[in-house]
Design a binder for these strands. Structure first.
Lengths: 125, 125
DNA sequence: CTAGATACTTGCGTTATGCAAGTGACTCGG
DNA sequence: CCGAGTCACTTGCATAACGCAAGTATCTAG
């Protein structure tokens, strides 16, 4: 990974600063863990972009892929601590959106005030 | 502006979710107000992208362009309340970057804990 | 052994970004 | 009044990212 500068803002954006990465992360946070589930989000992400973003998130250590069953082998994606730590960014986006864009869907309050730890319950496997 | 969904997260990202917009906003927050100053940021933004992002920020009402002198007429860009309200997003990006990316430049603490009002001192003109 | 489900990959056209060079308004020194 | 300089962009063109549709690979149930 090379960064545009050593500013922590631009560097973070070098990793997650595009149209889709945080949307995928948000979706995992609200419980969508499988590729098929993620394809069904209302933003209509396309298959190649989703695969690409999941690979990027895994490569950057924000998400971990693990088999949740054998025969047939199926995988799910879960947040790591590094990924869950983006919750404050996402929460700040929620607050800005609700204040400045009319008629947005309002997430439940417990999501808006949750802490990152809520989203990586078991780092074991 | 059309949005991918009515989720406040994806909608906010529809406006500012690219590689450059928040970097420009950050630069304005730390006191760079003129086109020429903004061109000198360490991330090396190109002229067309900067002009494009400034136009977008103005169109979306996050930034206001105003003449700071006549003869020769010169303009500067200042945050509106709507733009300054993105400070929490930027601060969250700072904290994540400092925690998870090694060797980043560390902004002064008063920037990291400031509130949006700091950045739109006078809405008059 | 064939249909269906899951999880991707490939191809290809459109949009966004990056780099270099050019333009237009103004100002100042001679 | 003329030419050089500054500021704030704009234009042209090449590369990278995104969006859509279709195809592939693996497994499983019937």
């Amino acid at each position: 990974m090379d960064f545009r500068s050593d500013c922590p803002i631009s560097s973070t954006l070098d990793i997650i600063g595009d149209r889709w990465t945080l949307v995928v992360l948000r979706s995992i946070m609200v419980g969508k863990r499988r590729y098929g589930e993620l394809l069904e989000i209302p933003e209509r992400i396309s298959t190649n972009i989703l695969a690409d973003r999941l690979a990027l998130l895994e490569r950057e250590g924000l998400v971990r892929k693990s088999a949740y069953q054998e025969r047939p082998k199926r995988y799910e994606y879960r947040l790591t601590e590094k990924g869950a730590d983006l919750l404050p960014v996402i929460q700040a986006l929620v607050e800005w959106g609700l204040k400045h864009i009319p008629c947005r869907w309002e997430p439940p309050m417990d999501y808006r005030t949750a802490s990152p730890e809520t989203f990586y319950p078991a780092e074991d496997d």
